[in-house]
């Protein structure tokens, strides 16, 4: 971050990468518009509104109308980015997402801001640890949970280019930029193997990818060789990557989401039909007690420590 703190990496708010990239895309494609529910500030879209007031539609606090309006804008040839806190966007307007966006196969980009436990102490009404589970049931809808600012920018570009509905899960936590080769490129439906390994596969998405890599470092110190897969694309799912993970015989999944029905559920569905192996699914168990995001991550084992422990458990259960 600075010369005085050489060991702590710079942290980035992925919303900045989202907003900056959307600006670039909107600059070259005038079909891009934004639809918000009084969520300009929390979506960091103040700059967009200033540049393109006519392309900014603030429906007020009305999520059902917001998503329907998004579908209508797509009918009218626009590419709407419908951006709101994920808890309200995906829960309040779920039927609109199902019928007006997914079933209609409308070219709408849903942007779930501050998902997971991003709102920490505000409690379960404001947490969005169910969004990937209920959206994963909807055909046609791509679901992307980027891991860092680079991938967020790539995902915004990919969403704009993709003809069809997309859900982007944009975190508000500070995350470091992950090390990647220069030729890295995000692709909808493709997993990214960040670290090769042979003893256990750690499959993560979103903010948990950094911690998965840290866990792999710790495991390596103890002689365990862990593969780390970034499964940013929850739908469509890279089933080949999941089968390759199952071939290692032990899997840990980790997500800032409920343990039920999200990334872990998706991985388990594929593994069960291929080569069953122990899968430790790390996530949140239910409605969260009061606490900061950091507190909740630590309390429920969503830490490099917790992932390391789960990996060892999965290995010990390996069916050989």
């Amino acid at each position: 971050m600075s010369a005085t703190q050489p060991t702590s990496p710079a942290l980035f708010d992925c919303r900045d990468a989202f907003a900056a990239t959307l600006d670039q895309v909107a600059e070259r494609d005038n079909r891009i518009v934004i639809v918000v529910n009084d969520s300009i500030g929390s979506s960091k879209l103040g700059g967009f509104r200033k540049r393109w007031p006519q392309r900014t539609i603030n429906v007020g606090i009305a999520e059902q109308n917001m998503v329907g309006v998004g579908s209508g804008l797509a009918n009218g040839g626009k590419i709407p980015f419908v951006s709101a806190a994920s808890c309200f966007l995906t829960a309040r307007a779920l039927e609109q997402i199902k019928a007006d966006v997914a079933y209609t196969n409308a070219n709408v980009k849903l942007v779930g801001q501050s998902p997971g436990v991003g709102y920490g102490e505000l409690g379960p009404t404001h947490h969005s640890i169910e969004d990937m589970a209920w959206l994963r049931l909807l055909p046609n809808l791509a679901i992307i949970a980027p891991s860092d600012p680079w991938e967020t920018a790539q995902a915004v570009e990919a969403a704009a280019e993709h003809e069809g509905p997309v859900f982007l899960r944009i975190t508000r936590f500070g995350v470091p930029k992950l090390p990647r080769p220069d030729n890295a490129r995000f692709e909808i439906g493709k997993a990214e193997t960040l670290r090769e390994g042979r003893d256990v596969a750690i499959i993560a998405c979103g903010v948990m990818v950094t911690r998965a890599l840290e866990a792999a470092d710790r495991l390596a110190d103890g002689g365990v060789n862990a593969q780390v897969v970034n499964m940013a694309s929850i739908a469509p799912l890279d089933e080949a990557a999941i089968r390759a993970a199952a071939d290692l015989g032990a899997i840990v999944t980790v997500e800032e989401h409920s343990r039920r029905g999200g990334l872990g559920g998706a991985v388990a569905e594929v593994v069960a039909g291929y080569r069953p192996c122990p899968i430790r699914i790390l996530g949140f168990p239910g409605f969260m007690p009061t606490g900061s995001p950091k507190f909740l991550f630590e309390r429920f084992g969503l830490t490099s420590n917790g992932i390391e422990k789960a990996a060892r458990e999965a290995i010990s259960l390996r069916l050989l």
């Binding site: 998503v67 309006v69 804008l73 626009k78 609109q96 007006d100």
Partner: peptide, 17 residues
């Protein structure tokens, strides 16, 4: 209750254009 919101979106697109 889905048609009117969608129609509003189309009408807004027409207005923008």
């Amino acid at each position: 209750g889905h048609g009117l919101p969608i129609a509003v979106g189309i009408a807004l697109a027409g207005k923008i254009d």
